[in-house]
Amino acid sequence: MADPFDAALDLLRRLPPSKTQQNLNGIISLRPDLEEDLLSAVDVALAVKRCSKTGRDYLCCDYNRDGNSYRSPWSNAFEPPIDPDDAADLIPGGRVRRMEENLNTAVDVYRELYYEGGTSSAYLWALDDGFAGVVLFKKSTNASASAGKGGWDSIHVFEVNEAAGKRSAHYRLTSTVILDLGLSSQSVDNLDLAGNLTRQTQADLSCGFRDSEVELQHVVNIGRTVEDMETRMRNMLQEVYFGKAKDVVGDLRSIQPLSEAEKDRAAHRDVLEKMQR
Results as ranks from 00 to 15, higher is better:
98 R>F: 00
203 A>S: 09
16 P>K: 00
163 A>V: 10
17 P>M: 08
155 I>R: 07
30 L>G: 08
1 M>P: 11
35 E>N: 13
65 R>Y: 10
84 P>T: 12
99 M>P: 03
137 F>G: 10
239 E>A: 09
120 S>D: 04
108 D>V: 06
273 E>R: 12
3 D>S: 06
204 D>F: 12
144 S>K: 02
210 R>T: 13
197 L>Q: 03
144 S>C: 06
3 D>E: 06
206 S>W: 14
38 L>W: 07
154 S>R: 06
121 S>M: 11
107 V>E: 05
215 E>G: 07
157 V>W: 05
268 H>R: 12
32 P>D: 02
55 G>I: 13
34 L>G: 03
97 R>P: 09
25 N>A: 15
142 N>P: 00
266 A>C: 03
262 E>N: 13
231 T>G: 01
69 S>Y: 09
160 V>G: 05
245 A>N: 09
73 P>N: 05
269 R>L: 15
117 G>Q: 04
144 S>W: 05
202 Q>H: 15
67 G>A: 02
83 D>G: 05
184 S>N: 11
182 G>Q: 03
229 M>N: 01
86 D>H: 08
272 L>R: 10
150 G>M: 01
162 E>S: 10
165 G>A: 03
163 A>I: 05
97 R>G: 04
257 P>E: 04
245 A>H: 08
145 A>C: 01
36 E>S: 14
60 C>R: 13
85 D>W: 07
225 T>N: 14
14 R>H: 07
